[in-house]
């Protein structure tokens, strides 16, 4: 589908660390001096064992969290340490986030869930409804607009989550273990969908996974261990 969209930013992380807890024995150093550049429109996978800092890295890229030290830049502008209000504004307009556990709001229908980011951006009601229907049709859920999350299968829920992530036409798509809760058939379908929407929109896609088969879909493979990037390889 061809449409106007937010241009994907060039992302840079410079000397980023993220530490949790008080200084001392309880201190957890989730990221240790990350330097990373992600050009617009690339498909990057981030792999590594549990607890290596993948999700923390993704949270920093999504501006859900702020680094303890170092800088997160979009197109050269420091954004990581801006106020929560500003980061929320950037997130709303520029980032689409897909969670492992879908995180649809249980009291909203599929269409209302997709409309949620557009409502926050004060998109006109008619435009919201039209676009939500289009997106749900695009992810193969035309006709399921009025279904509540508990009436959907896991694969369908994740499709709604993908549609929601695309609602405000973001340039940056972030997916945290998007197939972690799905069977292999649904996992493949979701990966195909993500690849297609990324390609159609020329968006940047950063996909966190510990599944090598999923990571293999990406053009660039980052591997992490113990809060550090241990390899960064461009694929075929």
């Amino acid at each position: 589908m061809s449409e106007s969209r937010v241009r994907p930013p060039g992302i840079e992380l410079a000397g980023v660390t993220r530490t949790y807890g008080e200084r001392g024995p309880d201190e957890v150093r989730a990221l240790r001096g990350i330097d990373l550049g992600i050009p617009p429109g690339t498909f990057v996978s981030v792999e590594g064992p549990s607890g290596c800092g993948k999700t923390t890295l993704l949270n920093l890229l999504a501006l859900l969290d702020a680094p303890t030290s170092g800088e997160v830049r979009w197109d050269g502008r420091t954004v990581g340490t801006r106020s929560e209000r500003e980061r929320a504004r950037l997130r709303l307009a520029g980032v689409g986030f897909i969670f492992q556990r879908f995180y649809l709001l249980p009291t909203l229908t599929a269409r209302e869930n997709v409309e949620l980011p557009m409502r926050a951006l004060r998109t006109a009601r008619a435009e919201r409804a039209r676009r939500a229907s289009e997106l749900l049709a695009e992810v193969g859920l035309g006709g399921r607009e009025r279904a509540y999350p508990h009436q959907l299968s896991g694969g369908e829920e994740q499709r709604v989550a993908v549609a929601r992530a695309l609602a405000n036409r973001p340039g940056l798509l972030l997916a945290d273990e998007p197939t972690g809760e799905l069977d292999s058939t649904n996992a493949l379908a979701i990966l195909d969908l993500l690849e297609r929407v990324r390609r159609d929109r020329d968006a940047t896609l950063v996909l966190v996974t510990h599944n090598p088969a999923v990571a293999a879909r990406a053009r660039r493979h980052i591997t992490m261990a113990d809060g550090r990037i241990t390899s960064d390889v461009a694929g075929a």
Binding site: R91, L105, L116
Partner: peptide
């Protein structure tokens, strides 16, 4: 708590 977290993660402004 989770619903609020999801909304905020999506970028819904605090005032909303």
């Amino acid at each position: 708590r989770r619903s609020i977290g999801i909304r905020r993660a999506l970028g819904v402004p605090g005032r909303q």
